[in-house]
C-alpha cells in the first residue's frame, strides 16, 4: 500500500509549501497592515492608533504566513516594485482591449464578428506568483480568460475572437518575467 515516495528536491514546487513564519514576515505584514489601517481609519489620535497597532499585530500573528509564503528577502521587495512598474502597461492593455470588447458588444452584427476559441500554450514563468499574475492579467484583459493552469504550467485561454487571442503569450509574459526578475 505504502508507496515508495522518495523526495525529489529538484522538483520544488513552491505553491505546495506551507508558509513559513519568521520574524521578517511578521514585521513586513505588520507594517503593511498598519499602513492599510491608517488608510482606512483616518484617525490619528493615540487611542485609535493603539487599536490599529493591536489589530495589525493580531492579523500579522494569525495570517502572516498567508501573505508571504517564504522568508522575506530583497528579492521580494524588488519584485514588488517590478510589479508596480508593470501595472501601468497592464492598465493600458486593459483599456485597449476593453474598447475592443465594447465595440463587439455594441455591434449590431456581433454574432458574426466573434469567434470563440481556446488557446493552449505552455508558459515559461517559474514562480507561482508570476504565474498568478500572468493568469489574472490575461483574465483582466477583456477578450481573454484563463480557463485553467495545470501542474505543468499549461495555460488554457478562452479568447472571444482571433484578435484578442493573437497576442498571447507574447509581450505580457515577457513583461511579467521581467517584473518578477525571471528574465
Amino acid at each position: 500500500m505504502k508507496k515508495d515516495a522518495a523526495p525529489q528536491p529538484k522538483l520544488e514546487l513552491p505553491h505546495y509549501q506551507e508558509g513559513k513564519k519568521s520574524g521578517s514576515v511578521y514585521g513586513a505584514t505588520f507594517i503593511l497592515m498598519m499602513g492599510v489601517w491608517i488608510l482606512l481609519s483616518g484617525k490619528f489620535d493615540p487611542f485609535h492608533l493603539a487599536l490599529g497597532v493591536l489589530s495589525s499585530a493580531l492579523v500579522s500573528y494569525f495570517s502572516a504566513d498567508l501573505l508571504f509564503s517564504g522568508p522575506l528577502t530583497g528579492r521580494t521587495i524588488r519584485t514588488f516594485f517590478g510589479f508596480l512598474g508593470y501595472l501601468p502597461w497592464l492598465l493600458y492593455q486593459i483599456l485597449l482591449s476593453a474598447l475592443h470588447v465594447l465595440y463587439l458588444s455594441f455591434h449590431p452584427r456581433m454574432m458574426e464578428l466573434i469567434d470563440p476559441q481556446v488557446l493552449r500554450f505552455r508558459s515559461r514563468l517559474k514562480s507561482d506568483l508570476a504565474q498568478v499574475t500572468f493568469a489574472n492579467s490575461i483574465t483582466l484583459t477583456p477578450g481573454t480568460i484563463t480557463i485553467y493552469v495545470n501542474f505543468h504550467r499549461d495555460f488554457s485561454v478562452h479568447a472571444i475572437d482571433r484578435f484578442s487571442g493573437e497576442g498571447l503569450p507574447g509581450e505580457m509574459e515577457r513583461r511579467i518575467a521581467r517584473a518578477f526578475g525571471e528574465e
Binding site: A98, S105, P116, P142, I145
Partner: peptide, 11 residues
C-alpha cells in the same frame, strides 16, 4: 456562457 464572461467580468 464563456463569451458572456468576457463583457460581464471585465468591462
Amino acid at each position: 456562457f464563456y463569451s458572456r464572461l468576457h463583457p460581464a467580468g471585465k468591462l
